[in-house]
């Protein structure tokens, strides 16, 4: 791995990282404050009349007036939030598998084969991201629900999310595959291996970092989506977690920001867990170079 930064003292790197951590964490601490306040209000600073500097300093520190886990309890007890999380997990996991599968195969073809339509195909994947999605809700509804009869079905969502994630994943993987030396495959070809075998046995194991990134991306695409999930699902037991979260706010009714914050924290946990799991691929010593050497 890179040695180039060895001459920068770690102290300065830590200083920068700690600063970034503070910036990153501060708004999230406010989310936590709302979640653990036991109240429903979105937080603003609370100042006494004619505040002193000290009052202001105290006011900008995110901390609830009293700590309570009531919001978390209510989120799970007053609606089937656990079920919704499970649905989300199912859809997101399936999207990840499907998205990564479709993207690795396509990415591999774009990287390794020279065939007519290759550039056009790649550009069409890129271009597909450029058309704004504001007007596509009704056409997508027609395709999924009326044509494919996948209303209120996990598969409908999985298909939608996979295709949303594919273009980025294909490009990402194609770029990574390009960096893997061809000599490895050529020697395998000599040994009589088919393209499919080379792909599964040689290329994929070498591409773990890129697959990890695309897996995380596919997962996130499915995990946070809200409008399609809501439009397609016609049973409460089929809703996903982001749909469930939106129950707490919006419209002319009381705004349950406490529940929303608590639910958001809970929804972030699986993402963190997935990242913890995937990050060993992001920093693994198993690089193309290592194998090559």
């Amino acid at each position: 791995m890179s040695n180039r930064n060895d001459s920068v003292p770690h102290f300065w790197l830590h200083l920068f990282l700690v600063f970034m951590v503070l910036v990153t964490v501060y708004p999230i601490l406010w989310v936590l404050t709302v979640a653990f306040s036991g109240q429903q209000a979105l937080m603003f600073v609370d100042l006494p009349p004619d505040p002193s500097v000290l009052d202001r300093v105290r006011a900008v520190v995110p901390w609830p007036a009293q700590v309570s886990v009531q919001n978390f309890v209510d989120v799970f007890s007053q609606q089937p939030f656990g079920r919704w999380l499970l649905n989300s997990a199912l859809v997101a996991a399936a999207t990840t598998v499907m998205g990564v599968f479709l993207a690795t195969t396509a990415g591999y073809a774009f990287s390794r084969f020279r065939f007519p339509g290759r550039r056009a195909g790649m550009m069409s994947f890129l271009i597909s991201q450029m058309f704004p999605g504001t007007l596509t809700l009704v056409p997508l509804y027609i395709i999924i629900v009326q044509w494919l009869h996948l209303g209120s079905n996990y598969l409908g969502l999985i298909l939608l999310y996979s295709t949303t994630a594919i273009p980025f994943c294909v490009w990402m993987l194609k770029g990574y595959f390009d960096t893997i030396p061809r000599e490895l495959e050529e020697s395998a070809l000599m040994d009589g291996a088919s393209p499919a075998v080379i792909f599964w046995k040689i290329i994929l194991p070498l591409s773990k970092p890129a697959v990890a990134v695309t897996a995380l991306f596919s997962f996130m695409t499915a995990w946070n989506e809200f409008i399609l999930a809501l439009t397609i699902m016609d049973q409460e037991s089929m809703y996903t977690a982001p749909v469930g979260l939106r129950f707490f706010v919006g419209g002319f009714a009381e705004q349950q920001w406490g529940y929303f914050a608590a639910g958001s924290i809970v929804a972030a946990l699986p993402v963190m867990a997935l990242f913890l799991f995937l990050q060993r691929f992001l920093i693994s010593g198993l690089t193309a170079g290592a194998v090559k050497g």
């Binding site: 629900v145 209303g151 439009t231 706010v249």
Partner: peptide, 21 residues
């Protein structure tokens, strides 16, 4: 009954009802 979050409720009606769904 089916509860629908308010924020996209109107969109859901617009998409689903005219198609008999």
């Amino acid at each position: 009954t089916l509860a629908v979050p308010y924020d996209a409720y109107a969109d859901k009606i617009t998409a689903a009802v005219p198609r008999g769904k």
